[in-house]
Amino acid sequence: MIKVENLTKSYGNFQALKGVSFSVQKGEILGFLGPNGAGKTTTMRILTCFFPATSGKATVAGFDVFAEPHEVRKKIGYLPENVPLYLDMPVPDYLSFVAGLKGVKRREVKKQVETIMEECVLTHMSHKLVGELSKGYRQRVGIAQALLNDPEVLILDEPTIGLDPKQIIEIRKLIKGLAGRRTVILSTHILPEVSMTCQRVIIINEGRIIASDTPQNLTSKIQGENRLLVKVDGPSSEIIKNLEGIKGVRKISRKEGGNGISQYVVDSEKGVDVRREIPAVIVSKGWGLLELKPLEMSLEDIFVKLVTKE
């Protein structure tokens, strides 16, 4: 659906994008992850034909971004980063205005605006000016305008920034609900967001893509091993000795606590699951197993690892 090849963009001497290539399949939700100033917004602006790239090629739904911007714009719904809306317009008026510009047929404008307002839970705000709405509702108006005329591709630049936790959950739900028929690219620098909403992640830093995979694969690839947290009531030196005897366990380290209840981190080799053997050993020795849970490397850790490796 979207294909980007070797995109570069320079602002004067500063090179914001240094050769970015990726593609997005139809119906996929792609997370665009990176620290501030990594080039996320620049990439999105090029895809939405706001400005062209310095070099490289990008196509959306088969149309070239540089040669046929008009066609590309028809396919795209875009929500810029700080949600720039006309604050002096009533919500339905604003949406009708956008619907018209996006080419919704005159007769269908009213109906479509009503449907979208319902979808984005805005109906009870229809008597208000956009400027009177709270940040969360403005965000919804922003998403609503992106959804008008049913675009095949949605490009959302930091859609949950500045919202309260409840609103974030709602917006994420809204975005997840949009997938399937539509292709979505969303950028963020909040990591859990990506693991919660996206099927694929592209990590970008200083204008270059440094990783591209599913959130799960990224985690396991970088981690390289399985890590478990075990909380046991028993003599610690014996516990460590016994657990090290289990096949596949590479390393055990005590995290906290002395004799009695303490926590241990167990690293096992890649592909080996020792979650059955550990309780068996502990129970057979008569110690108390209080907790056993996998320790996943969070996307934060991966991110820091990738970015600092650069």
Partner: peptide, 14 residues
């Protein structure tokens, strides 16, 4: 100033 031009110019209009 308000950034609305960014949205306006990404609609299919000339």
């Amino acid at each position: 100033k308000s950034g609305t031009i960014e949205l306006l110019l990404t609609y299919p209009i000339s």
